[in-house]
Write a protein that binds this DNA or RNA. Sequence first.
DNA 1: GTAGGGTTAG
Length: 630
Amino acid sequence: MKSVSKHLQLLRPTWSYFFSSLASPSNEPASRLLNLCYQRDLPRAMSLLDGMEKRGIRADAITYSELIKCCLAHQAVTQGRRIHHHIFSTGYPPQTFVINTLLNMYVKFNLLEEAHTLFDEMPERNVVSWTTMISAYSNAKLNYRAMRLLVFMFREGVMPNMFTFSSVLRACERMCHLKQLHSCILKVGLESDVFVRSALIDVYSKLGELMEALNVFREMVTADSVVWSSIIGAFAQHSDGDEALYLYKSMRRVGFLADQSTLTSVLRACTSLSLLELGRQVHVHVLKFDQDLILSNALLDMYCKCGSLEDAKFIFNRMAKKDVISWSTMIAGLAQNGLSMEALNLFEFMKVQGPKPNYITILGVLFACSHAGLVNEGWNYFQSMKNIYGIDPGREHYGCMLDLLGRAGKLDDMVKLIHKMNCKPDVVTWRTLLDACRAHQNVDLATYAAKEILKLDSQDTGAYVLLSNIYANSKRWNDVAEVRRAMRVKGIRKEPGCSWIEVNKKIHAFILGDKSHPQIAEINGQLNQFISKLTGAGYVPDTNFVLQDLEGEQREDSLRHHSEKLAIVFGIMSFPREKTIRIWKNLKICGDCHIFAKLIAKLEQRYIVIRDPIRYHHFRDGVCSCGDYW
DNA sequence: GTAGGGTTAG
């Protein structure tokens, strides 16, 4: 008996199908259609649909939904429009669910106008219809339209859900709107939804309100790895690497696993803090995602910015896929690390084998020319960017060209270019001119440039300091006193030079005049010994870089304790000879420290890398990668 | 049927 009932059970669907097809014979093609959709057989499904249309047969909502999925899988726009036509031609009013599916199809095909027309014609729009359109506009960065739709949605009395809020938040550009949205989210009790939460964190961060982002994060009762990634990314993008790394450690401690996005932000934090050793540890976790282009680019950038070009080249060469960012990162990385010719060769190779260069690629190329003193090549590349790639030069490109001319001492050409620029000169423009005037001892032009800077920003420390140094170099002590008086009156102080070095996973900071380091006496003693040894070998301190109008020994004394010298000596004391000494600092290296680093690298047979806010110096065997041109 | 986080310069 048991086996008979088992057989009957097996037969039951067949019988029910038989009876149902007797009762409604027109359903049979619809079921066949659904099967074809499941098989993703679009041609046969479409021909069946044509037959159904002629006989006035319609399918159910699930079948239409599957048919549209089939079109999306085949990227078949024409067939999608045919289905749209069919749904409205059978004489039955389509369900909202079915129209929403069509709406979604047009959005996925990036046909927003067609989607919007259909949306306008819908007899009834539910929360999914509204959210589909809002999300489409947010994705397309048509933020105003997305926000406006939310208002219309409220007016029609449709309540947004968590999908709506996480979509519309991305379109929010103003703090007042964000505050309103946030209140609304709290009011309807959606703040614990992880999608809404991560979107809130992201928008607060994009609008520069990091503390608000942190508040949203801290108030959470719910979390997932994306919420963690959002807050880590927020700090990493705002150059607060310390907080980003602290949050990453907390994330690991509470048991969440880092994925590609998290690791990308963590690498960015390592990059901003120049933490090569930590970066290498993160690299181990990155290995399991080696197909992820964004993550690989972040890794490449980390090695470039931490001054380890061997690792950067290794990563670049074995990346299976490279995009314009990979190429631009490598070109700029080579240029910033003093390998200008390699950077330009790579750019030539990119022109043949790589993607089309963009605005940032050209910046790296011009930077390479500027730091190698290649004036003619720089001009050629500058002109070709518009002619060949259709890229209009921006403020940064002009900046590189001015830098190039300035380093080569072509001050008149600099002034001509400033007047020809298609944008108004800003503080950076004038500072480049001022810097060139200092290097080439042009006091009158320097005064002009400094005044232009102070017209734009009366508190600009750099202008005062550079002007003071220029006067000091020309021994115009009265003018120096005048500049310093102005600085005192306005309460402007020179930013103290600061250098950092990582020893045994600890960051050691050295600030000019600061004696707080526990080993400072030992470091100073060692430094004095080195200076004596170097002086015996012909080292003469270059006092052109002292702000104060001091004379003789006092001027040397001030230079003697520049933070990078202390960091170098500490590095020598802490590391074995074969370990690279890596230092990063907040200001550009001065000429005297540059000479000192070259000589000490030779004397002690050390490899020293110093990263300043713009570029890198690799000191080895008495020479620097910048070729003394920075 | 509708949703969230990541890369190059400055």
